Computed example of a mutant assay.
Amino acid sequence: MRNTLGKQERLKSKKLIEKLYSEGNSVKTFPLRMMYVQTKHTSDFPCQVGVSVAKRNFKKAPDRNRLKRLMRETYRLQKQIVYNNLEEPYVFMISYIGRDEINYEELYLKMEKLLTLFINKTKNTADENIQP
């Protein structure tokens, strides 16, 4: 698998984003929160991802853009955690909910923890749905 994050892997559809925030579940590892929903999407990839940083917490656009860039990069390098464990297509949005900026190494570790929590939670709900 190539470590890229192309156009087809990014969440851009307004309808899917609305569905995500109205019907989705969440997983949190401070300072990151992932909203996710299992749904069909137009991409050939198992999941589509978006990132966001609140303007309320980071007033200056360069600060928000830097955090979003770091979040996309840490996801891009670790997306095989998700891709190797999903059977159904998912859509998710990763939000930075902290008020202070953290460095790349910490963000990398938090992203890894968040993705493994997501996989564990989705596997648990899938197991519950199978059992009578």
Rank of each mutant, 00 (worst) to 15 (best):
R99Q: 11
R66T: 09
T39V: 15
T4G: 15
L109T: 10
L11P: 08
V91D: 01
M111W: 01
T122I: 13
T122N: 08
M111I: 04
S13M: 05
Q38R: 10
N120F: 05
Y108E: 14
N84S: 13
E101W: 02
T42R: 07
K40W: 09
L67Y: 00
L77W: 04
P46A: 03
S13T: 04
G98W: 03
V37N: 14
K79T: 01
R2C: 12
E105I: 01
F92Y: 05
L67R: 00
Q131G: 04
F92L: 09
Y21M: 13
Q78S: 10
N124C: 05
T125D: 15
L115M: 11
S13H: 15
G6V: 13
K121N: 14
K123L: 14
L109Y: 10
K40T: 14
L114R: 01
R33F: 05
V82K: 00
N103I: 09
P31Q: 08
V91C: 12
E106F: 12
Y75M: 07
N129K: 06
V37L: 12
S13K: 10
L117N: 13
R66A: 05
E18I: 08
D100K: 10
M111V: 02
E112S: 02
M1T: 04
R69I: 07
P62V: 11
R64T: 12
Q80V: 04
G6E: 15
N103R: 11
Q8D: 15
E106K: 12
N129I: 07
V37W: 13
R99N: 14
L107K: 00
Q131A: 14
Y83T: 15
I17K: 00
T122A: 05
V91W: 00
V82T: 01
